[in-house]
């Protein structure tokens, strides 16, 4: 479980996160949703420690991550898998080398063991026949799959995904969403997904947190989103005329 307690973050006096407190449970897909610029990415990056919060605490189970030094954090970071918005694959490494990278750097596994693990992860995300390709030679969806394979290569306890289906067509986006959900349940991970995609909310949102102007505005399940009477949430969810008409019906 990951718990965020009363965190604040500001840039030049403007609050990007304003007293946000959330619990993200294990074995569930926890979604953070909100408009662009609402503070979702800052929240996610604060949770993984890429951004330091001004105030508040971040807990990984019973460990207070926000007050740890770099070395202590590195121990927890070895249990994290992160899927970045642009996949963040290493340009100079092939698909296999990218997935093998954390194993190379952080484990003492033998060559065949590492290769076996890499092949397992790549098969799990349904990427085959592309082992020797470089990231520049992959499509957007393939990059995301390889990035997921890299994220799960170390058997993480925590999986973080920053807009996993941005830049993908709806069909591929749903495939990636379902993959994240399956992996979460299979490995019993605590998964946090940043998204502003309503398909993702309905498809995989076990627990949904709506962030509005840096504050936690609403929390519930993916299906409760549609029935909520929260005005800001409704404006976000039913942003199009078609969605509004459907709701009225």
């Amino acid at each position: 479980m990951i718990e965020v307690k009363h965190i604040f973050k500001s840039y030049d006096g403007n609050f990007v996160l304003n007293d946000v407190s959330v619990k993200f449970e294990q074995g569930k897909c926890n979604l953070i949703i909100g408009r662009s610029g609402s503070g979702k990415t800052v929240l996610l990056k604060s949770i993984v420690g890429l951004i330091e919060v001004d105030e508040g605490e971040i807990w990984y189970n019973d460990q207070r991550f926000s007050h740890m030094n770099t070395k202590e954090r590195q121990i927890i970071r070895k249990e994290m898998g992160v899927l970045f918005q642009g996949a963040a694959l290493f340009d100079s490494l092939t698909v296999v080398e990218n997935v093998m990278f954390p194993l190379d750097m952080l484990t003492s596994m033998s060559g065949p063991e590492k290769l076996e693990r890499v092949n397992f992860c790549l098969e799990r995300v349904k990427v085959s026949g592309s082992n020797k390709l470089f990231p520049a030679e992959l499509s957007g969806g393939m990059k995301k799959r390889v990035a997921i394979a890299r994220a799960i290569s170390m058997n993480p306890r925590y999986l973080f995904c920053d807009e996993p289906n941005s830049g993908l067509d709806p069909e591929t986006g749903i495939v990636i969403d379902n993959l994240i959900k399956e992996l979460t349940q299979e490995f019993n991970m605590t998964t946090i997904v940043n998204s502003h995609d309503m398909n993702s909310v309905l498809e995989i949102g076990d627990n949904v947190v709506f962030i509005y102007e840096g504050c936690k505005c609403w929390e519930g399940t993916g299906h409760e989103v549609l029935k909520s009477d929260n005005e800001a949430l409704n404006n976000f969810v039913f942003a199009t005329n078609m969605a509004r008409r459907l709701k009225e019906k």
């Binding site: 990056k45 993984v48 890429l50 954090r73 121990i75 927890i76 992160v82 290493f90 340009d91 750097m105």
Partner: peptide, 21 residues
């Protein structure tokens, strides 16, 4: 380019000292 495409962040969240690497 590694910074803007979040490759350095990816190293950091893996628990790897990106500066040293």
């Amino acid at each position: 380019m590694m910074r803007v495409t979040e490759q350095i962040d990816a190293l950091e969240v893996m628990g790897i000292n990106s500066a040293s690497y």
